[in-house]
Nucleic acid binder design. Structure first.
Lengths: 129, 129, 129, 129
DNA sequence: GTGGTCTAGACCACT
DNA sequence: GTGGTCTAGACCACG
């Protein structure tokens, strides 16, 4: 599991890290119950601040993607992933709305939108097969 | 055309304003060539600072959604909207990727994803008739 | 002599008008002693404000490109064009310096710079032949 | 690297600052990867407002001359300078055209034009040797 | 300590 | 009256 962070991106590093871990779970690289590097290790691997990794881990824990045990360390939630709650669905639509709006504004057809999303879907799951 | 901004949101006001204007174009509320309120008027309407509106307008101008005439004011680009360029497509996929990743992670089916997007599509275009 | 103004440009209209007139002189479209449309006529031709045309004419007069007579109207200076004074040369270098700096920074070779300038020279004088 | 701004000039301060920085890169005073003072430091050095410096930095970032790292600060683009794109070339010719037009109008010979440009070239690169 | 965002209020160029 | 520029001063997210 290689994690690559773009230090020049406008996206906060901790957000990038969260995304990479979620993508790792989706791709199958990270399986339920599997351990994640400690905050310290991850930070030194990525060359970022410990606080940054800590923040990412805490958000992921809060959403139920991982568990943090004082002794055992950090593991992908062995009880399974969080569900599609109505709360999440609200966030989902709020996030995707401006993206769809701009796409429509630029004349992207709904079919093309589906095609592009399909590509992303496949790309994320490609290692799963 | 009523524009509503959430001053408490963590999303920058100028970003919200950009999104609202793009949504206005998509819904048909704002038509090509139509004028937008001056920075000062819009600012006072929204209860925010002039510079915040200015920033939103300048980003929209940069992307080709609006034109800013030195003394005549601001209008929706009468020459039509920007296209789906390869550059835009890159941004599009980068933005939608983490959203799809989390959706997959939470077990959302691709069909459900399409359905939810469909809802957003319809919601954005509903006034178009 | 057709004059085309870009109302959406960031360059002030009066500056554009000055430039177009100077280009007209260079190309031979406007000859020494030849009359220019009155402020009123020019303004209505271009669809701009009288004050704007007035401003352009006054600057051109100040630099010695045109003469403004109360009765006879506006004419290209029949006594010839202003010279390359040391004052002008200072302005010239100040204006061209940042252009050359950016060109150098982007790796433009001095030969290429000359070639591009040559093109502009020819383009400006092409009607002269 | 001393940067001098003319607060009385009609050229916006942020534009002057952009030009000075580009000239610094050309002269070799500022090398790829080298850090630039923080917006606040630069602002206090120049005796101008933080936002003015910020605007200059953002334009330079947009054009690819510098990189802005969220918390690490500002550096000259270590990946090299932007190229001579066709878009840039358009801007270049548009900017240089009125300068050449006036020079021609005043009777400057093309050879003299070359000589004067040569001087500016040498002046900009003099520290490079 | 860094840049990002926002405010309040000012003057200027342009039309 | 419009946008463009600038100031002074504030709070926040990030690392």
């Amino acid at each position: 599991m290689f994690i690559k962070i773009d230090l020049q991106s406008e996206i906060p590093i901790y957000t990038q890290l969260q995304n990479r871990i979620i993508e790792g779970i989706v791709s199958g690289d990270l399986k339920a119950g599997e351990p994640l590097p400690s905050v310290r290790t991850m930070a030194s691997d990525l060359g970022v601040n410990m606080h940054t990794v800590n923040k990412a881990y805490n958000f992921l824990k809060q959403d139920g993607f991982i568990q943090i045990h004082r002794q055992k360390g950090v593991v992908i939630n062995p009880d399974g992933m969080p569900e599609v709650t109505s709360e999440y669905l609200g966030k989902f639509k709020q996030e995707i709305r401006p993206i769809i709006a701009e796409a429509l504004c630029r004349g992207m057809k709904e079919e093309d939108f589906s095609t592009f999303c399909q590509e992303v879907f496949n790309n994320l799951q490609e290692k799963r097969g």
